[in-house]
Amino acid sequence: MTVVADIRGALKLFAQPVTDGNRHVITTQYLYPSGEYVSVYVTPGVSGSLIVTDGGGALDALSAHGIHIEDQKRAFTVVRRYQGIKAEAGEIKTVKLPRDPSLLAHAAVTVARASAHVAEYCLAEFKPRQKRNLEVEILTALHHYVSPARILRHRQFVGKSARQYVFDFAVQLGRKGTLVVDAVEPEPASFLTKFASHMDIARSEQGKLEQRIVYDDSQEWKSQDLNLLQMAAKLVPLSKFKNELKSFNL
């Protein structure tokens, strides 16, 4: 077998359209950031026209990386750099093309290039932010004001309902009672659990408890979620936590 035959065999994949329902799928030589080939879809329209799309592949590449974007207009800004294509309903597509093989080749390559470009741009632009380690930061702040021996981790208290709850930190305040500090994340499973536990121990008749729920104010929070948490205990943004500790004269 000659080298030319090897090359032909290797590139055969790109010249083999596959039919999927009413559309034809072409594997192109462009790659998404995750290494997958970009596929473009050719859909025959009425009166023999053709539409070439990426089938939403650029956005699917983001979904696969767990990135959910609200502002799709911003995601597709780079599409403007390519002539003759547009972004519509989450897909990159051409206008209706007359049935002409020479136009089809250029359209397929342009759509594929734009799709890979959008995916690359969005993966860099909408990269998930590294979350701060809230518990470690709370612990660091506590140590500035309280000796390590007075800080208890994962302290359990029993609420009025007789249910038992674990709190991230408990600081002994002497005659003033106990300061209970909990870190909360902007996920329903986290804040609803904290809400229930703080509501319940606030109603229990045990030693004097000062309750504080600390949240990372550099993260996106819905105001209604913060309002809900505020009903259970005093809510403190992480950036103000040291000021809050100062107020206790520890």
Partner: peptide, 17 residues
């Protein structure tokens, strides 16, 4: 710590720091 710990009747388990 000891004094406050005794004051909290409902505290069940304390994990040492």
């Amino acid at each position: 710590i000891g004094r406050c710990g005794r004051g909290l009747a409902n505290a069940v388990v304390e994990k040492p720091f």
